[in-house]
Amino acid sequence: MPLVAIYLRVSTDGQNAENQRRELEAVATRSGWTVVEVYEDHGISGAKGREKRPAFDRLMRDAARRKFDMVAAWSVDRLGRSLQDLVSFLAELHGLGIDLFLHQQGIDTSTPAGKAMFQMLGVFAEFERAMIRERVNAGLARARAQGKRLGRPQIAADKEAAVRASLAAGMGIQKIAKSLGVGVSVVQRVKRQL
């Protein structure tokens, strides 16, 4: 009976991984797998590296300790968006003798066909990420062309003058921000403009 770790990830705080969890636990039951632990990163992009995804990092540390025989995930894009990271992840798992099951793609990397398919899916995940980036950049360019101002709103002129005066008087950045009720970044921006 294989020991399985389930990895779940959602990108935003408004999402939850309950559907992923329920379906993967059902697959484990049908397949006769024993789920040893569920690792869940909540509100973290798949583009983030291992160091920014605490559950993923813990999963990899437990893999090195050989706490399980297989990792089960909902989809390839739950694991990451970069082909290089995905291939590295798969190589690390296989180096440890651990297989990967991807529910949505029906991939089991314990087979040669599953290994090949996983690599192709990684290419498509990276392509999708690049397309999203292009659409966002095109939207920003369109907004600029329409004369829309992007970024944070400017502070009132009197507040900016007060920040300048406080900086000239030698006050610290955090003290100015707190006393005037503005963000530290606002004070830093005004200081850079001096």
Rank of each mutant, 00 (worst) to 15 (best):
H103E: 06
Q20T: 05
R149L: 08
F56W: 08
K115A: 11
R9G: 04
A177S: 03
L8C: 12
K115T: 08
R189V: 00
H103Y: 09
I132K: 10
A145R: 15
F89R: 09
Q84I: 08
K52V: 02
F56C: 02
A157F: 00
S110G: 14
Q15Y: 08
D41N: 07
M171V: 09
G95T: 02
A138E: 14
K48F: 11
R129S: 13
D69S: 07
I132D: 13
R22L: 13
Q119K: 15
R65G: 04
V123S: 00
D99L: 06
D41I: 01
E160V: 04
Q193N: 13
A63Q: 06
A91G: 10
G183H: 07
S179E: 13
R192S: 11
V10R: 05
E25M: 12
A130D: 15
A63W: 04
G181W: 10
R53D: 05
D13L: 15
H94N: 09
D108A: 11
P2V: 12
A47T: 14
A161P: 02
L167K: 03
A17E: 07
R21V: 05
I107L: 15
A113E: 14
V163S: 05
K175W: 06
E37K: 15
A169L: 07
A138T: 14
Q119M: 04
F89G: 00
Q15C: 10
A169D: 15
F118T: 01
K148A: 00
Y7N: 04
Q119I: 05
D85P: 00
A63C: 07
A138R: 15
E160H: 01
E40M: 11
S11T: 11
Y39R: 06
M131N: 15
G139R: 10
Q105Y: 03
G147D: 01
L8A: 07
M117E: 13
G80D: 04
K191W: 03
R81C: 07
R22H: 12
D99H: 12
